[in-house]
Design a binder for these strands. Structure first.
Lengths: 122, 122
DNA sequence: TTGCTTGCTTCAGTTCGTGAAGCATTGCGC
DNA sequence: GCGCAATGCTTCACGAACTGAAGCAAGCAA
């Protein structure tokens, strides 16, 4: 049996498996940094969930929160190195999604053997 | 804004973000195949959740279910190619967990001052 | 007959996520 | 001054997801 406390996959899963978490990190990696930017980009997320996610990620040392005492107040969220280290994971997901979940395998079972490995897009 | 239906990261996240999902896939990749094996390995999962996960993964074409009409009944779950394609993702998680969530970074936070100007995967 | 195993399902309860609304700040038009 | 707008949240009530314990069917062993 796998020990939940020491298994690195489990520990990563605990950080990553919450709904929206990976998409928040992806958005931050792509340059979005403000609450309302994220809220608009992640169509469908509730502000409560976004707030919880950002707080948990800050707690975990994955994002850093900077407040600017302007009017209206501005808050920026930036990935720390620990957060940027998750980007390869997201790139894997992008590759997987393109290869196995694309428009041409809607039935979910068609292997994409002939497909070229996708290059990360800008 | 990102279109949830076409973005490959979102589509992968939808499959992957449920609690236990990635750990179930990891266990299958490591050779465990029977319900009770998974149940024992994933200490803490409820049989209902495991059942739901396996069913959803089967639905998604990620695992294949084979029943053997023995006594007591035997059921084996095996990763399809589409499922095995998720293993690199899990390996990335293992690497990340080891690198950033190990015993030597329990506090989980490297201050921004130490950050290198690494270019984000924009 | 009771007990044992596997692979689940059912039930009640807790936690998680949603959607709408509200709050505090203050600069702008009126 | 008054209401409106924008940002970055919080609060609330509700539904969905997950949990933990229990139960069930099948058949063989004691």
């Amino acid at each position: 049996m796998v020990d939940k406390d020491t298994c690195p996959v489990c520990r990563t899963a605990e950080i990553v498996c919450g709904k929206w978490t990976l998409l928040v990190i992806r958005d931050l990696a792509e340059g979005r940094s403000r609450f309302c930017e994220l809220e608009r980009s992640l169509a469908g997320i509730s502000p409560r969930t976004l707030s919880l996610r950002l707080r948990a990620l800050e707690e975990a040392g994955i994002v850093e929160r900077q407040t600017f005492p302007e009017v209206p107040p501005r808050v920026e969220y930036v990935l720390t190195p620990k957060g940027r280290a998750l980007v390869p994971l997201i790139e894997d997901m992008r590759v997987y999604g393109r290869e196995w979940l694309g428009a041409d395998c809607e039935d979910g079972y068609t292997p994409a053997a002939a497909r070229e490995p996708a290059v990360a897009a800008a």
